[in-house]
Nucleic acid binder design. Sequence first.
DNA 1: TCAATAAATGCACTTCCATTGCATTGCCCT
DNA 2: AGGGCAATGCAATGGAAGTGCATTTATTGA
Lengths: 138, 138
Amino acid sequence: MIASDKFLESKGIRPTAMRLLVFQHLAKSKVATTLSDIENAFAKADRTTLFRTLKTFEQKRVVHQIDDGSGIMKYALCEEGCNCELERDLHLHFHCTNCGETICLTEQKIPHINLPDGFVAEDANLVLKGICDKCSGQ
Amino acid sequence: MIASDKFLESKGIRPTAMRLLVFQHLAKSKVATTLSDIENAFAKADRTTLFRTLKTFEQKRVVHQIDDGSGIMKYALCEEGCNCELERDLHLHFHCTNCGETICLTEQKIPHINLPDGFVAEDANLVLKGICDKCSGQ
DNA sequence: TCAATAAATGCACTTCCATTGCATTGCCCT
DNA sequence: AGGGCAATGCAATGGAAGTGCATTTATTGA
Ligand SMILES: [Mn+2]
Ligand SMILES: [Mn+2]
Ligand SMILES: [Zn+2]
Ligand SMILES: [Zn+2]
């Protein structure tokens, strides 16, 4: 367990107080997090700063953005061994229509798809919607 | 080739002039269509009416909405033999990052995914992003 | 150390699209 | 014709992403 500030530095991010708080908040969360989630968690923080913090994290491959179709972007930490620099870590996401939470299913990779001639895929987004384990009572 | 008005009626939709125009516009289009696309095609039409027309079509399973991650919703006619009423017709969509167009790959179904215990999937959205056949020059 | 420089932050504002409220119009049926 | 409901048009709202710019904070190097 490397210290947060060292980790951010290793990614080329200056570890400001705000960034450390946001990073640790993301690290604690088991589910994908919205900008508003973070805004509510740190009442003193300005939305724009948080927004730009997330964009910085995304650019430096510390988090990935998740579009689960809810209309609100969510963010989650990238996995430890994730080789985001080369190729996106194409796991799928599950969005619970009951509790509204979205989680990374990092074990479930997006299967390879054979596309018609002429189509070249560079990225993929697979979101399953339904009832999550907590909501299905199991 | 059934007449448009008869078709809409068969779906429980009153075939107004506006609705027929929108339907035929969608039928002609090879790619998924935005509200603004339609608005531009019929300068006289009001955006709200077109919006509600699409919602009606969606509810009656004449079109399906496509969230390709571009931030703008798109719509495409459902397939002829599509049994949308029972279960969503889970084909994938391809979004070209060059020309911005999104097309239904109705032949390419979303593969079945084994989920962890407790997760129950009811819907799925798979969007591949990259270069389309027209833009790859092939 | 201290001034110069660069990076991060905070506030206000904009933009874009989806969505709604409400008054009006048009259609259908008796 | 007239009552009633569905469809339409216009105006306004809402939610979220994103930008401009001034201010504060950190870093650098003379
Ligand atoms: Mn994820
Ligand atoms: Mn489609
Ligand atoms: Zn849930
Ligand atoms: Zn293209």
